[in-house]
Design a protein around this nucleic acid. Structure first.
Length: 839
RNA sequence: GCCGAUGUGGUGGAAUUGGUAGACACGCUGUCUUGAGGGGGCAGUGGCGCAAGCCGUGCCGGUUCGACUCCGGCCAUCGGCACCA
């Protein structure tokens, strides 16, 4: 063993050994417990940044730990290779995206290897290869047959910079998630997947992920799916237009409806606008107004009457229909019944346009004291409500006993009773029924981009859209193209778009749109189980490996990727390709890596160059630092001094090992011959093994595991015992420390294990086992409290009975001073921990 | 507005089931080693106090022998959703 720690050489040697021995190649073995550990695969942008390093280190630590427990561990890696940056880079260089992507993959693969991750590279996948994407094309055509795919012209989110359609999930604050450009609304024919058919199942499935997935992620998905139970109500037309359908979750307030409002895009609005110039202008204005969603929410409530009326379904009273900018076409029926007394938005609108306000619930009127300040009393004088009602309204204080009022036969009911009664009455009249609504929309998967998987459809003038037949798959994306500007070159490439209709044989046009790249990342985890299968999407190996036992990735994928993958898993399940409902049994969302309090980014100039760190300190130091600082799911601050500290620790440990080994061979521990001090130290060792095991396995708090190891080593440095048994215990300790550090600093451990004289590599070693007998104490220390405050400590036999403990506590000199002869009222003993004397 | 987190020394954080608050590190101070730089060793490091001791986990209250931990009510920060009827 060298005297000084030389990470460059140590790491090269270890990596060469792993490579030469295929150490991480996993094969199915039904006799062993499997463990599929997966970190979210990266987009091959060109370089690994510190966020990547942290993500993959966490995954690698878990994978290596599980392997040491004896499990059959599979940890694959691949590339989410389609996507816009490749196109943008290609436009800049007047070259094709494919070679740029393959170069980046090669470079990043080298960086991964340099970091020593235990990936099974024989399973490597790049989603831009037809061997991969052909199977999603195949699945798409199967889904088309089942009616789970459809094409429709829809108002879409159009990103004017990236020249493509975005899914709702990809629009953030009215801007494109990647380009940041303000999104426009356009009408374009597009392909959709019926994710809404699975809305209930995706929602219910979240329950079984409790404890296994972070609360935050489950809550975000729940909100995104946005299930609501309500009633669909028909308001009959009076003025020879058409009936108005609305959706409401508050049917109990139906008797308080004083007008109806429709979205600007609603057919009734369009019809009325034909004969109303002012209304037509208002509608145009609404459609082109500031489209940022955040602005919409705070925008002034504007509206105009359509001049038409509908009939209240229970009272037949005529209600005016307004066009209002606060009604969304995309939710429910694009129309609402307005109950100004019990809905803030309706109230604001009614107040502004002097529409009637009618209270029908006691104690829950929206007019809180806060709103009352904003709307002085005079504002209501034109409204339908009298002095008494108004006073009752304001006087009501307790919101827990709500009942329906001013509502005929429904008065006196609770809101829930009223919902049921009103829904029943409406159903009897054929004017309404209970209905469940979702916020979730069907997934639009068409992208007008080149660097993606071609959508395997042919558009025929007579037959309509026809799927490409199975024997003609895959539809291969031509890789040798030159991109001159935004927009897809496929649409101007006859060799690609010219096709024959599989139905009638006529000339037809191939679909030139490509899939949203979330399509590829929705099922890659399954393909990793059998990446070489060229006859089917998946085979029986998927049944062995799935589900993924531990998935690790960024919280930014809480909704998009993780929801799509859960959806795809069910689609594949229903095709008989996989078993089980959920793809990822356990999820860990790792926190960001910050520098100077902000997320690292090139624009802020606060990035840390991964390559530079690896060259200066080595992979083990970087890995150790990112695992030491905080629990994996918390954000960490990159500190140069912290990295120095991690490096110093490894150097010190190396020296400790060297010094110990220089003393020569240490024999085995002879338990009977241990002195009291040796036993005490050895107990600390086994307590540490127990804690580290729990931290790595159950708690996943590697930071506290590493702290415990450091504590043990600090104690080991103080434990200077040159006797034979002292050296034996020291040897046992250092071996256990090396084993426990193996998942985090595998190269260091590899070299240290050889130096400790082992023939077999540490990668195949077993995780250290706690020697229960070492944990036994003859004497323990108890804390003595007086009235809950720490006053002293007593040493006492571990098996001492209650009386002995009480006597010892009462007679302790430090404690006695605080008793001051006052009578002890009560003595509480927490076994093994403390004694509390209450005076 | 709704949902989900989080709040502890100068800093990152620890305290797992209600039982010794501040583990482990970073930084800082003193000191030793070295020709110097660097590196390393040792000691100290929540606040106030000479000390005994007192105070101390965002704020206010409660439960308890005992509260960072549980309950009620606030405040602040971060993240997500947001005119969802």
């Amino acid at each position: 063993m060298d005297e000084t720690y030389d990470p460059a050489r140590i790491e090269r040697d270890a990596q060469q050994y792993w490579e030469a021995n295929n150490s991480f190649h996993a094969t199915e073995d039904p006799d062993r417990e499997k463990f599929y550990c997966l970190s979210m695969f990266p987009y091959p942008s060109g370089n690994l940044h510190m966020g990547h390093v942290r993500n993959y280190t966490i995954g690698d630590v878990i994978a290596r730990y599980q392997r040491m427990l004896g499990k059959n561990v599979m940890q694959p890696m691949g590339w989410d290779a389609f996507g816009l940056p490749a196109e943008n880079a290609a436009i800049e260089r007047h070259a094709a995206p494919a070679p740029w992507t393959y170069q980046n993959i090669a470079h990043m693969r080298d960086q991964f290897k340099r970091l020593g991750f235990a990936f099974d590279w024989t399973r490597e996948i790049a989603t831009c290869r037809s061997e991969y994407y052909r199977w999603e094309q195949w699945l798409f055509t199967r889904l088309h047959k089942k009616g789970l795919v459809y094409r429709k012209t829809a108002v879409v989110n159009w990103d004017p910079v990236d020249q493509t359609v975005l899914a709702n999930e990809q629009v953030i604050d009215g801007k494109g998630w990647r380009s940041g450009a303000v999104v426009e609304h356009r009408e374009i024919p597009q392909w959709f997947l019926r994710i809404t058919d699975y809305a209930d199942e995706l929602l219910d499935g979240l329950k079984q992920l409790e404890l296994a997935w972070p609360d935050a992620v489950r809550a975000m998905q729940r909100n995104w799916i946005g299930r609501s139970e309500g009633v669909e109500i028909v308001f009959r037309d009076i003025d020879a237009g058409s009936d108005l359908k609305v959706y409401t979750t508050r049917a109990d307030t139906l008797m308080g409806a004083t007008y109806a409002a429709v979205a600007a895009e609603h057919p009734i609005a369009a019809e009325a606008a034909k004969t109303n110039q002012a209304l037509a202008e208002f509608i145009t204005q609404c459609k082109h107004g500031g489209m940022a969603e955040a602005e919409l929410a705070t925008m002034e409530k504007k509206g105009m009457p359509t001049g038409t009326h509908v009939r209240h379904p229970l009272t037949d009273e005529p209600l005016p229909v307004w066009v209002a900018n606060y009604v969304l076409m995309g939710y429910g029926e694009g129309a609402v019944m307005a109950v100004p007394a019990h809905d803030e938005r309706d109230f604001e609108f009614a107040h502004h346009h002097r529409l009637p306000i009618r209270q029908v619930l006691e104690n829950t009127a929206v007019l809180t004291s806060e709103l009352r300040k904003q709307h002085p009393r005079s504002a209501f004088e034109t409204c339908y409500f009298d002095e008494t009602e108004w006073q009752d309204w304001y006087a009501s204080k307790s919101p827990d006993e709500v009942q329906v009022v001013n509502s005929g036969r429904y008065s006196g009911m609770t809101p829930q009773q009223a919902v049921d009664a009103i829904a029943g009455d409406l159903a009897a009249k054929g004017l309404g029924s209970k209905r469940v609504h979702y916020r979730l929309r069907d997934w639009g998967v068409s992208r007008q981009r080149y660097w993606g998987c071609p959508i395997p459809m042919i558009l025929c003038e007579t037959c309509g859209p026809v799927p490409v037949p199975e024997q003609d798959l895959p539809v291969i994306l031509p890789e040798e193209v030159v991109l001159e500007g935004p927009g897809s070159p496929l649409a101007t490439l006859p060799a690609f778009y010219q096709a024959t209709c599989p139905g009638c044989g006529a000339d037809a046009r191939r679909e030139t749109d490509t899939f949203d790249t979330f399509f590829e990342s929705s099922w890659y985890y399954a393909r990793f189980t059998c990446p070489d299968q060229d006859q089917a999407m998946l085979d029986e190996r998927a049944h062995y490996w799935l589900p993924v036992d531990q998935y690790i990735g960024g919280i930014e994928h809480a909704i998009l990727h993780l929801l799509y993958a859960r959806f795809f898993h069910r689609l594949m399940r229903d095709e008989g390709l996989v078993q089980g409902d959920e793809p990822f049994a356990r999820l860990l969302t790792q926190g960001m890596v910050l520098k100077d309090g902000a997320k690292m980014s090139k624009s802020k100039g606060n990035t840390v160059d991964t390559q530079d760190m690896l060259d200066r300190y080595g992979a083990d130091t970087v890995r150790l630092f990112v695992m030491s600082d905080a629990p994996p799911d918390q954000t960490i601050e990159w500190m140069d001094t912290g990295v120095e500290g991690a490096h110093r620790f490894l150097k010190r440990l190396w020296r400790q090992l060297f010094t110990h080994l220089a003393k020569g061979d240490a024999g085995a521990v002879d338990h009977a011959a241990l002195t009291r001090d040796q036993k005490t130290f050895r107990r600390l060792l086994h307590e540490t093994i127990a804690k580290v095991t729990d931290d790595f396995g159950r708690r996943m708090t590697m930071n506290t595991a590493l702290a415990a190891i450091r504590e043990l080593l600090n104690a080991a440095q103080r434990f200077e015992d040159e006797r034979r048994q002292g050296q034996a215990v020291m040897r046992e300790t250092l071996e256990a420390v090396v084993l426990m550090l193996t998942p985090v600093v595998p190269h260091f451990a590899h070299a240290a294990w050889i130096a400790l004289g082992h023939e077999h590599p540490v990668i195949d070693a077993q995780w250290p086992v706690v020697d229960e007998s070492a944990l036994v104490r003859e004497e323990i220390e108890l804390v003595v409290q007086v009235n809950g405050k720490l006053r002293g400590r007593i040493a006492i036999a571990a098996d001492a009975d209650r009386e002995a403990i009480e006597a010892a506590a009462l007679s302790d000199a430090a404690v006695e001073r605080f008793l001051e002869q006052k009578p002890v009222r009560k003595i509480i003993i927490v076994p093994g921990k403390l004694v509390n004397l209450v005076v």
